[in-house]
Design a protein around this nucleic acid. Structure first.
Lengths: 203, 203
DNA sequence: TTTTGTTGATTGACCAGTCAATAAAAAATA
DNA sequence: TATTTTTTATTGACTGGTCAATCAACAAAA
């Protein structure tokens, strides 16, 4: 077995430590020492591998995004129908891994930080676009173009809103009812068209 | 006219300065000097009137909450029908005053800070409960209890989600389409329960 | 003359980022 | 193989800057 360099291990440990630190503190106001300490190394080493703090933050966000994306890919892969594809995307958003208060606190913090950092803003835009396109991959087969767009936007907003409320530990605490809410929304939106309702989706 | 003490004027100016500073910076990482400077006073004076920074932050949040509440009261007052009451609540959430990026950035920042501060968390809970109850004041007359509760929760989540997306300046930029989305959601939710097919000229 | 309003200067803490130094592993060389 | 050399891994100690909070002092009403 080939002995591997420390770098990837340390990077990963530091990113994990960043997530858990943010999750516990509930904000990005965590010191490099705090993060490094959790990862079992000195703060100097964290700087050595990531340069500046905001690069570590970006890397952490990228990691979160990549994980969400991987989960979504897998879920989409095992979905057969268009309707199933939509549910798959929704289910992943509220899966145990993604709906953990720790993870959510990190996402929320990044939303705020994105106001200051162009790099983070770009990453969040990637997330928003991907979510939209993933939802469309199912919706496009069930609704006319503009209605599908509309529905995707509503679902996305609903997901984000439920995340925020989860962060507050108020309102909708459990994942199941969150999924129920979004599925319900989706259902009414689809049934409107199955019944042949005509609506002007002007934009 | 009775000459008034400086205290209320200064407090108000400092709170306004706090909102605009947060709005511009996009986060609660604003210094007392920055805030005081905007209000045209020294940072020492800000401490004199508010004691500690987080008391100023709490006061600012309370101010935001009070303003939203006042707007909502007024809107509810001039609504005649239950259906109108719901639309009124929605409309206020996306009114020019409330849907300003400045204000939204402040709200979002407070959401994050609430993770750390019990006082802020309590305030946000007040907001959530009020929003729910305001929505219910219309919904309760149109839907069975549990369906109304469900709908209120969905609408609230949708509003929060649209706020977040607005903060990103991505997705749904203008208030009109945000209102449209929420109204649409409400409409489909109501139509499922309406006996006859009645179209109401929605705004 | 007591109360209210106001500030400049200062303090003490905290923290990102740097650096020189050390250890250990790998690679190169003899 | 045994050695030197280079690269990688790691840290403690330090620096420069920032900022909340305090305080003594001064001005102006009341």
């Amino acid at each position: 077995m080939p002995k591997v360099g420390m770098e990837p291990l340390r990077r990963r440990a530091l990113i994990d430590a960043t997530i858990s630190a943010i999750g516990e503190r509930g904000s990005l106001d965590v010191t490099m020492s705090e993060i490094a300490g959790r990862a079992g190394v000195s703060s100097a080493l964290a700087h050595h591998y990531f340069g500046a703090k905001d690069e570590l933050l970006q890397a952490t966000m990228r990691h979160l995004l990549a994980e969400l994306n991987a989960d979504t890919r897998k879920a989409l892969n095992s979905a057969q129908t268009p309707r199933g594809r939509i549910s798959a995307v929704i289910a992943v958003s509220f899966s145990d891994k993604q709906f953990q208060p720790e993870t959510i606190a990190a996402w929320l913090s990044f939303y705020v930080e994105a106001q200051k950092s162009m790099a983070l803003r770009r990453l969040l835009r990637v997330y928003a676009r991907r979510l939209h396109s993933n939802l469309m991959s199912g919706l496009a087969d069930l609704l006319p173009r503009s209605a599908a767009d509309h529905a995707a936007e509503g679902i996305a907003a609903l997901i984000d809103g439920l995340y925020i409320r989860r962060a507050l530990k108020d309102g909708t605490p459990n994942a199941a009812s969150a999924v129920g809410l979004v599925e319900d929304y989706l259902e009414t939106r689809l049934s409107g068209f199955r019944a042949g309702k005509h609506r002007s989706g002007g934009k």
